[in-house]
Design a protein around this nucleic acid. Structure first.
Length: 481
RNA sequence: GGUGGCAUAGCCAAGUUGGUAAGGCAGAGGACUGCAAAUCCUUUAUCCCCCGGUUCGAGUCCGGGUGCCACCUCCA
């Protein structure tokens, strides 16, 4: 099966056909590095990560570019406020970006170009646009003349009259048309500036993506990703710039993710209802946050709330429990016992194959991670029932099928970027485990003497310290957190 | 005003080309337990916002409503 992906440009799901089968090229709009990114931004980083992982699973080589916007109004404002240079500000939040995305298990892109490293190329692009009549200069500012680009509006499905009638943009007397957008801004007092044929200034927002994507990915490439709010005007303008000089379509598939909402409304900095990923990670583990982000379809809005985070946490825990259970059942040494009931083993083996197929079909259908996760839950249930059976025993056949299940969970989980295998916990302090064991021994003696007060006191107080006691038929287990 | 999207059980949510409602959370019942916790199993929508239509058959297509969200300004 081939991947079907929804293309904002055509407003329908399309079969993915790479420009170059040897290398799939993806460009993602990255962060403006003036602050920590919020959970809504995080979604825009996780979505291309899932796309990339799934393409790699299907055998493609992927080349992924993500930009850092390190010059714009917000950067200038923030740098001035903090009394640092733009460069210092950018460096700081780029470092933070890598720290946080690493926790979220987001694979690194192949390159992370910064806008300020491409000023010369941007100027070249603008000169060309000017030469070919798409851009005009007014007093040191350069504007793109939207009317000159016939296809303007094709991504967001707007025509110029309708855009103009609903426009809330402030009327700039210098523009020929209110819809024209700025390509180059003349510098004002105290603002960073680069020399250009039109005098000192800085690039407009949309130019960098046209220039940097072309630099790394060429005239024609596969995917461009970003949040749906970027479709207009950012991506629309990017298309106008790129195609005006290129003459034909540059990007085949536009992939836009939905928002993260708060109380049903879009999370945004201006509304002030945002939560930085960094803060959320203080309360929830990164894999839970990631699992939350992929537990709905990527184009649907998702609501950010403690209830939903906790649902995600429990849902993930359920999968992990089963995988850990399988892990414990598989013996370290080779099993010599011959198989007993072959029939049930075969049924499980079939179920593993079926659920993998279901998982792939879900991912093929526009990266339906919600459905893919459901197939993992279904498999987990089958395995639980299988090993719960009183007839279940460890033998060659059952070990083989458990290993297959274990590897399947590991592999499919890694497509989602979720580690399902039990962690090989490295305890901070080597003294802690033996101390807990000691307490448990004392508790066990108390229980034998039916001294429930003491036994429960140990259990309850360990619980207060974050250590959970589980009395299993095989003995007592414990777990930190 | 234009454009895009959404409306499915208490909550979150998937529903491929129409064929008789995935999965998770919570709840209920059960297994396990000294009691718990944790875990596992079972169970939970005569019905998919409303009205009309096409069809042997519609959550799924068509027409008309209602409600919500988003974009058209920086925004992932």
């Amino acid at each position: 099966m081939a991947l079907q992906i929804y293309n904002t440009l055509t407003k329908q799901k399309e079969e993915f056909k790479p420009v170059d089968p040897e290398k799939v090229k993806i460009y993602s709009c990255g962060p403006t590095v003036y602050d920590y990114f919020h959970i809504g931004n995080a979604r825009a980083f996780v979505v291309p990560d899932i796309l990339k992982r799934y393409l790699e699973y299907k055998g493609y080589n992927v080349f992924h570019v993500m930009n850092f916007t390190d010059i714009d109004d917000k950067m200038i404002k923030r740098a001035n406020k903090e009394g640092v240079s733009i460069k210092e500000l950018a460096d700081r939040f780029i470092d933070a970006y890598f720290e946080d995305t690493k926790k979220l298990n987001i694979k690194e892109a192949d390159v992370y170009p910064r806008a300020t490293d491409y000023i010369e190329d941007i100027i070249k692009l603008l000169k060309r646009l000017e030469e070919e009549g798409y851009a005009y200069e007014v007093d040191g500012d350069i504007f793109f003349e939207v009317k000159k680009f016939a296809d303007y509006g094709k991504l967001s499905n707007q025509n110029l009259e309708e855009l103009a009638s609903g426009a809330r943009i402030e009327v700039n007397e210098q523009k020929k048309d209110p819809l024209d957008f700025v390509l180059w801004k003349r510098s004002k007092e105290g603002e960073p500036a680069w020399d250009s044929p039109w005098g000192p200034g800085r690039p407009g927002w949309h130019t960098e993506c046209s220039v940097m994507s072309r630099h790394y990915l060429g005239d024609k490439f596969d995917f461009h990703t970003g949040g749906i709010d970027l479709a207009f005007p950012h991506h629309e303008n990017e298309i106008a710039q790129s195609e005006a000089v290129n003459g034909e379509q540059v990007i085949n598939y536009w992939v836009h993710n939905g928002y993260v909402n708060v109380d049903g409304e879009k999370m945004s900095k201006s509304l002030g209802n945002f939560f930085t990923t960094r803060d959320i990670l203080k309360d929830y583990s990164p894999d839970v946050v990631r699992f939350f982000l992929i537990s709905n379809h990527y184009r649907s809005p998702i609501n950010f709330s403690d209830v939903e985070l906790n649902d995600a946490k429990k849902s993930l825990r359920r999968l992990r429990n089963t995988v850990a259970r399988i892990h414990k059942l598989i013996p370290d040494n080779k099993v010599e016992i011959d198989a007993g009931n072959q029939k049930e083993v075969e049924a499980i083996e079939r179920a593993i194959d079926d659920k993998r197929v279901k998982f792939e079909e879900a991912m093929d259908d526009d990266l339906n991670t919600a459905l893919a996760i459901a197939s993992l839950h279904e498999l987990a249930k089958k395995i639980n029932i299988f090993v719960n059976d009183s007839e279940f025993e460890i033998n060659k056949a059952t070990v083989m099928v458990l290993e297959k299940a274990y590897n399947t969970f590991e592999e499919l989980g890694s497509i989602l970027g979720i580690e399902l295998r039990p962690e090989l916990k490295e305890e901070g302090n080597k003294l802690i485990p033996p101390l807990i064991e000691l307490l448990l021994e004392i508790r066990e003696e108390a229980r034998e003497e039916q001294n429930w007060d003491l036994a429960d006191k140990i259990r309850d107080e360990l619980k207060e310290l974050g250590i959970t006691i589980k009395d299993r038929p095989q003995g007592t287990e414990w777990e930190i957190e």
